[in-house]
Amino acid sequence: MSELTAPSWLLRIPEVFAPFAKEILAGLSASPLKELGSDYHLVRLENPALLQESEWAKFVGWNLPVHHAWPCNPQKMDGFIEKAAQGLARKFADVSPQTLLTGPLQTAVAHPYYKHLATNLRGRALQLFPPLPAVAEVESQDPAAPTLFCLLGKEGLFAGLQSPRLANGFYPGGTKFISQSAGISRAGAKLAEALHHLLLHRQPPPQGARWLELGASPGGMTSELLARGYQVTAVDRADLDASLKRKPGLEFIRRDVDAFRPEPRDRFDALLCDMNGDPRVALRQVLRLAANVQTGGLIIFTLKGAGAETASELNAISRACVSYAGTAGVELLSETHLTYNRHEFTLFFEVTR
């Protein structure tokens, strides 16, 4: 991997942040080359470390060093799959990635042609590579080991080696798309995606763990937690969806969060907060109740945009919240933008006090 050079990078900036793209790229010292797909930017990076270290990194949903590119229109090229597979084998067969994953240069509902093309390219390329370490499922990858990612679109083929953790997702292009159609609200899909993202950094709480959920109504996230075998104490001044009444494992407390006072001996393994309003106000309640979370426990917190009109303003809000959490013995693991986030970020904390 160290012998490969990446003259350019693919950065995915979610559509909701498109008006801030110029500001975000400037913050990352990125020189734009071309816009690709639905929300990809092909750029040159002066300092790739900024993708992990800069406060601007959270605006990039997924990133990939482009070690191999083939600008072309696959639909108009005879024998594209065979030529592309041979090219990938020549470039990467000797560097032993943990697996090869291909996908369309889209982030939501991709064109069927490119989904089919990506599947066929992966199958043919794997025939040309030496046997790769077994990866039964995408999520079973080692988040710290290099994966060969390859994205395809009408602009061509873009491939590179990157660990899922550094890329910010196990899948080509980011996290697994999870439909919200069957749940109580889109919040359930947002939590499912959040728990998927968490695997990049640590294991989620085991089945049977106790969660404290703040601002739970109408219960989309509550339902998702219960479906995963968790015990949930849900707090909100508004009722939960009727389908959740008398659900095993659920304790619902109808009360304002700021009036909720659990007993000191009442302990939780994780805390979840997706409350609306000023995130600094919500975080104050989270940190107060973090005293009831076990050391090593998890906190998932949605940081709302609170009317911020620029990326710099969002950064300032985030910076203040992370600093405040640190004073309470709560350490940031990751901050990212999920598919169902709007002008907001999902923050993952670990209780270290």
Rank of each mutant, 00 (worst) to 15 (best):
D256E: 15
Q127E: 08
I253D: 00
P32F: 08
E55D: 14
H197K: 05
G326Y: 06
A57N: 06
G87E: 06
L117W: 12
L88Y: 04
A136Q: 04
S31N: 12
C321V: 08
F17M: 00
L333N: 09
R267A: 10
D258G: 06
E35V: 06
A108I: 14
A270F: 00
A134Y: 14
K154Y: 10
G277W: 09
L200E: 00
D239H: 10
A209C: 06
H41F: 15
E155R: 01
R202A: 00
R44D: 07
R165Y: 00
L151G: 11
Y40N: 11
T352Y: 04
N120D: 15
L117I: 13
K304F: 12
T327L: 15
E55F: 15
T5W: 09
V322R: 13
F349C: 02
P48G: 13
P264H: 14
A134V: 14
V351M: 10
A192F: 04
P279Q: 09
T310V: 08
D94M: 06
W9M: 07
L10R: 09
A21H: 13
A30M: 08
W62R: 07
L347N: 03
S217C: 04
A306S: 15
E53F: 05
F260Q: 11
L225N: 07
C150K: 07
G153L: 03
G219Q: 07
R237L: 13
P279E: 11
W9G: 14
G27N: 04
T175H: 15
Q203V: 00
L132W: 02
V351L: 11
A159R: 01
R12N: 13
G153C: 05
F348H: 05
H68M: 00
K76C: 02
M1V: 14
A93W: 11
L199A: 00
D239W: 08
A110C: 04
A118F: 05
T99C: 03
H337Y: 13
R353S: 15
F158Q: 03
I317C: 14
V235D: 15
R202T: 00
S29K: 15
G277V: 14
P97Q: 05
W56S: 01
I178C: 00
L128V: 01
L250F: 08
P218G: 05
L148F: 05
G297R: 02
F17I: 01
R265K: 10
F348K: 03
R261P: 01
R228I: 06
H116I: 15
I184E: 02
I184A: 01
L33V: 04
C150E: 08
A30V: 12
H68Y: 00
L303A: 11
T302L: 06
F59E: 07
K154S: 15
F260V: 09
C321F: 03
L33P: 02
F17A: 01
F92R: 03
R261V: 03
Q141T: 07
K58P: 12
E344F: 05
Q127V: 01
A18Q: 08
P48T: 09
P133G: 08
A325P: 15
F20A: 04
S323R: 14
M275R: 05
F17R: 00
A18S: 05
G219M: 07
A118W: 03
V351I: 13
F158T: 06
Q162V: 07
H111V: 05
N276R: 13
